[in-house]
């Protein structure tokens, strides 16, 4: 009888999990996190998220773009990780997320908004997005780059004004090539 118990003791299959820590498999798609050093706040993850667990909102008053994950609604599909152009989304294998309060299930990254160089108001894109666009512009031919650089740092309204002004200027010229005094 004692032998029998000795043997069966080795055959216990039950995990002692909540009492002892358990190492989840490496492949487990657990809670997604945003690497705050790499995120540029483009909002591609918010676009791709099927249950809108990730949302992007722009706070013009405080001057921040907020990328917020609400884990309560997350279905762990990993699409945010798939679309992220900067590789900023990290899929961890953490699953121990049960909590008595819903407020604990929030992960938020606040990124500074860019200010328009003409009117000084907050634009709808972040400082980091501008930085990213600037690094891409260095590979463009110089003559094309100048034209783009003029408008890159402007907000949407100022850009429209500058564009329309330039367009009208180029069309309405007199026979000497000068801009006409009346635009219309």
């Amino acid at each position: 009888m004692a032998k029998y118990f000795e043997k069966t003791d080795k055959w216990v299959v039950t995990f002692r999990y909540p009492l002892e820590p358990l190492e989840p498999p490496r492949e487990l798609r657990g809670k997604p996190e945003i690497n705050p050093d790499l995120c540029i706040g483009c909002g591609a993850c918010a676009e791709a998220c099927p249950p809108n667990a990730i949302t992007k909102e722009i706070d013009y008053r405080e001057g921040y773009a907020r990328i917020r994950i609400f884990y309560g609604r997350c279905i762990y599909c990993g699409r945010c990780w798939e679309v992220c152009p900067e590789g900023a989304i990290v899929l961890t294998n953490i699953f121990e997320m049960a909590t008595p309060s819903k407020d604990d299930l929030i992960y938020e990254v606040n990124l500074e908004l860019h200010t328009c160089s003409r009117c000084g108001r907050y634009t709808e894109f972040t400082e980091r997005q501008i930085h990213r666009a600037y690094t891409l512009l260095t590979r463009i031919p110089r003559e094309r780059r100048k034209e783009l650089l003029d408008r890159m740092f402007l907000c949407r309204d100022c850009r429209r004004q500058v564009f329309s002004h330039d367009a009208l200027r180029s069309r309405r010229t007199d026979k000497y090539g000068r801009a006409s005094q009346t635009p219309f």
């Binding site: 809670k31 705050p36 050093d37 790499l38 995120c39 540029i40 921040y64 884990y71 900067e86 121990e96 997320m97 049960a98 909590t99 008595p100 407020d103 604990d104 299930l105 929030i106 992960y107 938020e108 990254v109 606040n110 990124l111 500074e112 400082e127 980091r128 930085h131 990213r132």
Partner: peptide
């Protein structure tokens, strides 16, 4: 419980 809310304000520029 092991999880708590995280609200981050990272630096201005990306490395």
């Amino acid at each position: 419980k092991k999880i708590e809310a995280k609200i981050l304000y990272p630096r201005r520029h990306v490395l």
